[in-house]
Amino acid sequence: MRKEIYSAFDSVHASRELKDRTRAFTARRQASRPRSPRRWVAAVAAACLLLAAAGIGGHWLYFTPTAAISIDVNPSLELEVNRFDRVIGVEGYNEDGRALAALVDVTFQRYDQAVEEILNSETVTALLARDEVVTITVTGSDTAQCHRLLSGVEGETAGQPNVHCHSANHDQVEQAHEHGLSYGKYQAYLELRALDPDLTPEDVADMTMGEIRDLLRALSGQGPDSGQNGRGEGHHGQEHNQEGARETHAGQQGGAQGAGQGNGAQGGGNQGNGNGSQGAGGHRYGR
């Protein structure tokens, strides 16, 4: 029986097709299997990439300045404001400005809080106490944001008579930066230059806004508190101009006189004849 049973089972074989199909199946599954961890890695990588992209996008959104608030007293500094009205950078445009920028820590604050903190800083309160003038200029490419920032800043500074708020367009700010000035000071510089073309941006950079205003008043010959001195200067300027005009006039006259004298000398060399001949000639031609 043992042999019979053995040979009975021994006659049973797996078919060639079944073996081949099984082989193909395992090969297929084995080939697809290592791809699954790879797919996982790819999925994780994609997720990471997406996160990174979102991060970079968010970073870009947050850290791209869309507006600037320029604050000028003598310290000139500018707050870079992002689209969420947060301060993302403070830049000083002169030495005092840099010192003040280093002193106040307003980065990542809301713009109105930042302005408030700067206006309340010791440096600025001391200057305001000396009746200095603060000019705050809001600039940016987004008009809506500029309006919002300006009204916010105006609200913040409503109680302070010596604080002036403006808004300006982006190109003007770029020009200001090219000259190494903050926008508020650059505007003042432009006004000054119209009156005195010799002024350089460097002259203005370290003047306080109050000094600039005084100088403006002085140069334009008006202003209630520059009074006599301003008028005097203006008057002097006029006098100087008149003198210049007179000098020119005298010069012309002198030239004419010289010419006359020369003629006279020449005439003196051969008096009578010359004149006579000239006269005769004149007469002759005249006739």
């Binding site: 049973v12 074989h13 797996a14 079944l18 199909r21 099984t22 082989r23 199946f25 395992t26 599954r29």
Partner: peptide
């Protein structure tokens, strides 16, 4: 081991149709 698996399927399953499933399961 193909023949061994085949014989075990024979004594256990009787149905030929299921043998291929077993082959796939076992060898995978």
């Amino acid at each position: 081991y193909g023949d061994t698996v085949q014989r075990l399927c024979l004594i256990r399953l009787k149905s030929h149709a299921d043998t291929e499933d077993i082959f796939q399961t076992v060898f995978l």
